[in-house]
Amino acid sequence: MVKVMLPSHVSGGFWLGLSKTFCIKHLPKQDTMFVLEDENGKKFETKYLVEKIGLSGGWRGFSIAHKLLAGDVLVFHLVTESKFKVYVIRSNGLGEVECALGLVQLDADIRPVDSADTNACERAENENREPKSVENPDGVIQRNKTAACNSKRGIVSDLFEDDTEDASCEVLEGIKLSESIVPFDEVCGIENFNVIYNGLIINPLFPKPLLTKYYELCCSQNSFLHEHLLEGLNYKLVAGIISETTNIADAIKACKITTLESSFSTWDKTLQAGEMLGMNVSFLREQLEQLASLASKLKTCEEARLEREQEEQEMRTRLAKLLEVKEKKDRLQSRISVKLMSRFKEVIDAPW
């Protein structure tokens, strides 16, 4: 779900109305506390109000913490029933992601930079600070806090003089332009396996174990699962989609009979969201559907077995009670017989 920030969203009442269609399809039917997790993993709690279809208490804190302004664009990715992963795209010039990578933008107000804008870019940069470095000839985004312009790619990087950007610098380090796209059948191993999106190799965004697992997942289908993703997505969102897909594939392999049906549902919804953006996850969804069906049948069989065991236990309990009653009856009859026999003898032995 994509939202363009309005003045009412980021000042004054700090109220964020959401898409009615999206909320009806995907969000809870009662007021719920939602977690908003930003790109750095920091979490904020906010309250989702069903009747008003929007976020209230807690949204103010998120807005202020991220210094949101009218015109900023937010991408909300629903990762669980009560958690959004939120990606921020700035309106005051291209944001860090778009500046660094030259992606096609999500909103009309955020446009790609062409060669005609390079001089303007340099002038604006010189007004604020002197450049400290330039783009590496190999296309690698160096870890320095400056802005450089390239006539072919537009803005290559735009990292501001702010301590909060250090983590972003570390992430961007190593990302470079791809000279060519190698077909998957020519990939010989993990050593020359590159995740390329919009002409950029984004391997540094993934831990090595996760990248290896994703490579194995692609090998199973003999194709890059992400090659048909829509153009213009935030590159961190792309990394998130790939990571979630890989993690869900791991979870599927590790699931047991005791795995909750809600887990299957959550995984499928997440995969469906990626599939809508072009991720090849149909084979995972098919396996999930089979597992969910088998799990449902197993649950039915287990419930029937437990019900049968309960009935058998109840039968054993009733039988035990019947045996107890029978024993009591036998003892009573025995005592009555003894008394009657004694009385019978007394009558015989009584004098005339």
Rank of each mutant, 00 (worst) to 15 (best):
S180V: 09
I196W: 03
G199E: 12
N247Q: 14
S263R: 07
F224E: 01
G199K: 07
G174L: 08
D268F: 15
G199Y: 14
A254D: 10
G189D: 04
V182Y: 06
L230Q: 14
L237A: 14
N198C: 13
A254S: 08
S243R: 07
S263H: 09
C169D: 01
E231V: 12
L177A: 10
P207L: 10
L217A: 05
G278T: 01
G274R: 01
E165I: 13
L172Y: 13
D250R: 07
W267V: 02
E244A: 15
S178R: 00
L277E: 14
V187C: 11
F224A: 00
E186K: 01
D250L: 05
I248S: 08
T212I: 01
P209A: 03
G189R: 01
D166E: 12
F283M: 03
T212S: 06
L200T: 11
K176G: 12
L237K: 07
L200G: 03
E173H: 13
K213G: 00
E170D: 12
T246F: 01
G278V: 01
Q272R: 04
L237F: 15
S243Q: 10
V182C: 15
P204L: 09
E186W: 02
L177V: 07
T270P: 03
S262Q: 10
H228P: 00
T270N: 08
L277W: 10
E275G: 11
E231Y: 08
S178W: 02
T259S: 14
S262D: 10
D185G: 03
L260F: 10
I242F: 02
F224Q: 00
E244P: 07
S178H: 01
Y197E: 09
N192S: 05
C169N: 04
L205Q: 07
C219S: 01
E227S: 13
F224S: 00
K208Q: 13
I201Y: 02
T258A: 14
E216L: 13
L229F: 11
P204R: 05
G278P: 04
L284N: 04
W267S: 04
T270W: 03
D268H: 14
A167N: 09
S262M: 07
T212L: 04
C188K: 02
L205V: 04
A249K: 14
L233C: 11
T245K: 01
K269G: 09
L271C: 04
